[in-house]
């Protein structure tokens, strides 16, 4: 287990090491220990390109996507635990939508975004990521694990459906919430194609687009490139490490009884 963990961490270590030294990545034999480490590459990234602007855009879009997912996925997930006409068909429709690759929906998504007048805006970038079907089903599985008698007790106590969801279901579904936050943070943080299509001005670009732009203008700055990569990776890793326990519980909830 330790060996596998070390093997998994090697690429991260290599990126971090290169970002601190700027050494030739093709050098042989490679230096295991960083030689003369420094933070100049990070300073370069921060000042040579509008990195803070990219970072701000990514943060805004990610926050919008995460909030949208929590709002819409919890409501949809809770609805799917209740009985309503044609529920089976709705579930089937959602599952079949998961089979359609995102690339196939880009043109209609673009047209809808344009029709809504949110092209080249944060909302436009976040729009297709405001709800994800897999996360709806994660919430559904989590809500179904809540004993039916708790919902009955809440109804007798006078709670409306909406309040049952907010006051009873959500506090008992922390793993599902953590899973939603992590998955949607990573997906929206790393999104490349949709922001590329939807943004027109450099001021609206997110970090992945900034990375591509950086690559195109800075060809011989390996250290700065790796520093950029580290800065892009750190927020996602931080969120994952903070919520990994709940994340794992969320992915496995409903798999076992009790």
């Amino acid at each position: 287990m330790v060996v596998i963990c070390v093997l998994m961490l090697i690429p991260f270590y290599w990126v971090l090491k290169t970002s601190l030294t700027g050494e030739n990545i093709y050098a042989y034999p490679p230096a295991i220990i960083p030689v003369d480490p420094h933070l100049f590459n990070y300073v370069d990234v921060w000042y040579m390109i509008p990195f803070p602007r990219y970072l701000l855009n990514s943060v805004i879009v990610t926050l919008m996507a995460v909030c949208g997912n929590l709002l819409f996925n919890t409501a949809a997930g809770y609805a799917l635990t209740r009985d309503f006409p044609a529920k089976r068909w709705v579930v089937l429709l959602l599952l079949s939508c998961m089979l359609i690759p995102f690339q196939a929906t880009i043109i209609p998504a673009y047209l809808i975004t344009s029709w809504l007048g949110v092209l080249n805006t944060h909302l436009g970038i976040a729009l297709p990521m405001l709800s994800t079907i897999i996360c709806i089903f994660i919430f559904k599985a989590s809500f179904e694990a809540v004993p039916r008698s708790l919902i009955d007790a809440a109804r007798i106590d006078g709670l409306s459906e909406w309040r049952v969801m907010v006051r009873i279901m959500l506090p008992l579904s922390k793993p599902a919430i953590a899973t939603n936050v992590i998955l949607n943070s990573i997906w929206s943080w790393n999104a490349f194609m949709w922001p590329l299509i939807i943004t027109r001005s450099p001021e609206m670009q997110t970090l992945p687009l900034g990375l591509a732009r950086f690559l195109s203008v800075m060809e011989n700055t390996t250290g700065a490139l790796y520093a950029f990569v580290v800065l892009v990776l750190v927020p996602g890793l931080a969120i994952f490490l903070m919520a990994q326990k709940e994340f794992i519980q969320g992915l496995t909830s409903g798999a076992t009884k009790g």
């Binding site: 708790l150 007790a153 809440a154």
Partner: peptide, 12 residues
């Protein structure tokens, strides 16, 4: 007011 078989106490 109802008392349930599994108590139905809010765990949180």
């Amino acid at each position: 007011a109802m008392v349930f078989q599994d108590y139905a106490l809010y765990p949180h």
